[in-house]
Design a protein around this nucleic acid. Structure first.
Lengths: 265, 265
DNA sequence: ATAAAGGTTCGACTCTGCGGAACGGTTGGA
DNA sequence: TCCAACCGTTCCGCAGAGTCGAACCTTTAT
């Protein structure tokens, strides 16, 4: 599961969380499947599952263990806690309605890409995930758009940790390719993906930043490549850029309101 | 945190997950706050946080620990994995557009209520949660609508485990009240809440079932009580009932398609 | 310059998670 | 009807792992 430095990590908790990853990967699993996947004793797996179930992280339906609805609860908490969440949600739904493609907003965390707002069916689909974790930065246009804004050392930290595994035949797999691509992204102002994350899919992404220049995440448009010819691609790029402006302006207004509210007290 | 039977539960994992609950409750916490909240040594908390961080469950921004975006990732997986998820989503958005109130779809799991689809800002808002866990069944109209369909023993199991704590002054707090209310719900066909979950809020919920009679969850409408007079309440009930029909019909169609697809192979 | 707070590392003690085997409950085929 | 296979549960002894406390480092504020 590619954990880089297991020193100082509690093995019991790690084993429990690894079980969660396995259940995700297997899209639901029976106990013996998990015993096989983890090389732990049946009684040990049982103890972990019981603990996870106690906290609502796992449920057992029809002799199969599944992840619990508590993840929805916690996920929604994370989503709504971002101060820009309302702006992001509005921007995505605007972009989605204007565009013929699917819109979403994604962030980088721990060197991985998670889609926070937008059509959740595709963006976070477990079918396209290598392990239990979210997308890699180098295979998604969101990832490329975001890390193009990072200093080189930060990018290196991420690839040192997660490597550059291919998702498709067209994925970037070497450092040189990646840094060249990031230079292109900076120059062009947005990132583009042609089947690098999912075969036959075309996507564009643009990073959005706070007034102070911190990168919040990336707005994206994606869809099957055959539905967009050269001409419509240009329109999609324009839409994306307008959406990014809307987002950044929305956040700026948000800060102004907050500032005036606090000064009134 | 009201864990009923700690036997067989791994204390290390439980401690880690308890930390997650604490971070949720405190809406982000510093390490010393967590030391205080848990009565563990600083080094112990550190080890747990490091492990949770390693798996993306926790992030540290500006000397504050927060829940990670991985919960969004896992939550979306849980959401989209339900076979009725598309039907539920469509029904909720229909109901939301037709009604003047907020629509959502919630399920019961482990004796707690989690809102899966619909406006996530309010339905799962952490501000209204007593501990890190989702809503109680007896304070929400979704919960009442759902457990009204359960056999009495199952309802008793739930209240034995979670008790009947009040969320507001109007909450149900005794078994007699609850069972009387559930009888009313069954008779009337839907559940109603007047400030029992949140002060000043009015809500209605109706359970939806599979063709075989299993309860999937509950469709709900909720909003501030002052915006709905007696007359509009009647219309909202009608809308809710039509939505429930749409949902159940949608699921029935889904099963037919699945059945014909498998028979073709 | 000093203090306070957040975070990190280390070693020793002790508790607890781990494995293995044995037991129950259910399903389905002989 | 019986047996076999599978899923889940319980129990116990031992070794390994988590816990604590203290010391250390870094950053921010006074």
């Amino acid at each position: 599961m590619n954990r880089h430095d297991p020193s100082g990590v509690l093995k019991t908790t790690a084993a429990s969380l690894a079980l969660v990853d396995h259940i995700l990967e297997l899209e639901g699993a029976t106990m013996s499947e998990l015993v096989e996947a983890t090389d732990l004793a049946k009684s040990t797996v049982h103890a972990h599952l019981k603990t996870l179930a106690e906290y609502g992280y796992v449920v057992n339906v029809d002799n199969e263990y599944q992840l619990g609805a508590k993840f929805c609860h916690l996920g929604d908490y994370v989503r709504t806690r971002k101060d820009y969440y309302r702006v992001a949600q509005e921007t995505v739904s605007w972009l989605d309605s204007e565009s013929s493609m699917d819109a979403d907003f994604a962030v980088e965390e721990h060197g991985r890409i998670v889609s926070l707002y937008g059509d959740l069916e595709f963006a976070n689909s477990p079918r396209f995930l290598i392990d239990g974790s979210p997308f890699h930065v180098h295979t998604t246009c969101s990832g490329k758009a975001i890390i193009a804004e990072y200093p080189e050392t930060r990018v290196r930290d991420i690839i040192d940790r997660w490597g550059l595994p291919a998702a498709t035949d067209d994925s970037i797999t070497t450092e040189e390719e990646l840094f060249a691509e990031l230079a292109t992204v900076r120059e062009r102002g947005y990132a583009e993906n042609s089947g690098e994350a999912v075969e036959g899919f075309w996507a564009i992404g643009k990073a959005v930043k706070s007034p102070r220049g911190e990168v919040y995440g990336s707005l994206n448009l994606s869809g099957p490549a055959y539905v967009v010819d050269e001409e419509t691609r240009a329109t999609q790029v324009e839409l994306l850029e307008r959406a990014a402006e809307r987002f950044e302006q929305g956040v700026a207004e948000l800060y102004q309101t907050q500032a005036s509210e606090t000064s009134e007290e």
